[in-house]
Design a protein around this nucleic acid. Structure first.
Ligand SMILES: [Zn+2]
Ligand SMILES: [Zn+2]
Ligand SMILES: [Zn+2]
Ligand SMILES: [Zn+2]
Lengths: 145, 145
DNA sequence: CTTGAACCTCTAGTCGCTATAGGGATTACA
DNA sequence: TGTAATCCCTATAGCGACTAGAGGTTCAAG
């Protein structure tokens, strides 16, 4: 019925210190304890931790996961908030892809700029790294709004 | 000839605390000081900071930038190391893009799973967030080697 | 009952900055 | 020369999501 934190870790693939961290951050409820102060979990904790893990694997930040857990406990609330979280995350992922694609293009150009010389002086890679005017596009990190 | 840290910040777009941080981390040489202990920079520092900024805008981690700066100061060294840094960064960017594309696909599916009901119970978004078996693909974060 | 694995709390480190506090220096202008 | 505004200094703490370690306690198997 009840199981230890190590057991929970084994069943979910989440490391033990991470589980304790999630509890401290309020994503997992504080479980019951043995007389010797060790945590004992139940099936519902397994579900909750699986939910958290999957959300993390989708890249959601912890505040968003907290909000989703809240929603799951108030099933009569409107679903707008959950939808908005999904849409926001999708947008954020797309922005990151767009940014990385610019970096990819410039890095392709830079790696190609090695002219086969043997020394740093002969090679244009270092110049390409240092000189943005050689770049085709802007590629600075977006201001994380 | 010489200019203050604020002036350097203005000319490069790098914030003042960031400049001090780069100095502490050994990317920028410690500049001369006024009698009142304020930093005074010269043209070569401007170049160096520009180089650093551009590398950061290309996503390079600071150790790689340190290595590139070292190479720039020993122009007779072989260029292999610079080429390797560029190739490594390109590969890393491509892996991140591949990962984010998987997230994008799953998040598209999740946002589309809102069936138009008004409450959390009616809406499938929360279920989709919690249940990886509904996903088409693996999408866990790659172990950052 | 003894052993050894697993558990506990607490602290600090990761990365690349950014923000704040509490002071001192420089500069411009009267 | 006085003074006020603006700049600069150091040192420390915080961000996010963990991870690693120290130093000590409890549990379960034999
Ligand atoms: Zn080369
Ligand atoms: Zn560039
Ligand atoms: Zn919905
Ligand atoms: Zn999934």
């Amino acid at each position: 019925m009840d199981f230890s934190i190590g057991e929970l870790a084994k069943r979910t693939g989440v490391k033990v210190p991470t589980i304790r961290y999630y509890e401290k951050e309020g994503l997992l409820d504080a479980p019951l304890r043995t007389q010797g102060n060790q945590r004992r979990y139940r099936a519902q904790d397994l579900d909750r931790l699986g939910f958290i893990r999957h959300c993390r694997d989708l890249g959601l930040p912890m505040p968003a996961i907290r909000d989703l857990i809240d929603l799951g406990q108030h099933p009569d609330k409107p679903c707008r908030e959950a939808d908005r979280i999904a849409a926001t995350q999708l947008q954020s992922v797309r922005e990151r892809i767009a940014h990385l694609r610019k970096l990819e293009a410039e890095l392709e150009r830079i790696t190609a700029s090695c002219k086969g010389g043997h020394t740093v002086t002969d090679c244009n890679v270092l110049k390409a790294f240092g000189d943005h005017s050689l770049c085709r596009d802007e590629h600075a990190a977006p201001t994380k709004a």
